[in-house]
Design a protein around this nucleic acid. Structure first.
Length: 139
DNA sequence: GCCAACGTTGGC
DNA sequence: GCCAACGTTGGC
């Protein structure tokens, strides 16, 4: 299984909205960046990801799971863009902030820290385990 | 609200 | 195929 991180501005789409979608999940529309799209194309059903609030909060607030592999983005007028569907799995017990990631040994190379603008990012297994521990949740 | 980083577009 | 102009993201 692979691990990922999804960024969202809570003003646009928040963790609470994601949770409200339940097991149906939500199509992760709106990505218009090749790297982010390619990351989504690499995802398999069952892969896990962190849900991160950018701009407001700047923290990891929950865990999601991929429930549908990448397919054309229904909001795109250009066929090159596609996206996965994700559902919420569990909230974190304690949010993990960007600042915390920056100073935590083992997380200094996270894409979250290094590639600040990438909206869908890979997370290594080692990073996943560290963040889960910080977040007070099982991995 | 500013600005740095960075991706994309389009003229040549 | 280069590169300047421009737009967007996201931290601060």
């Amino acid at each position: 299984m692979n691990y990922w991180l999804f960024k969202s501005e809570p003003d646009a789409w928040s963790w609470n909205q994601q949770v409200a979608r339940g097991d149906t999940g939500e199509e992760w529309t709106g990505v218009r960046n090749y790297q982010a799209r390619n990351n989504m194309r690499s995802m398999k059903v069952g892969d896990r990801g962190f849900f991160y609030h950018s701009n407001v909060g700047k923290e990891i607030v929950g865990v999601v799971e991929v429930v549908r592999e990448s397919a054309p983005d229904s909001t795109a007028d250009d066929p090159r863009w596609d996206c996965v569907v994700i559902k919420s799995i569990a909230p974190v017990t304690r949010p993990v902030t960007l600042d915390e990631c920056k100073v935590t040994p083992g997380l200094e190379n996270m894409a979250l820290v290094k590639s600040t603008r990438l909206s869908v990012q890979p997370v290594t297994e080692a990073e996943w385990l560290i963040v889960c521990k910080l977040a007070g949740i099982g991995s």
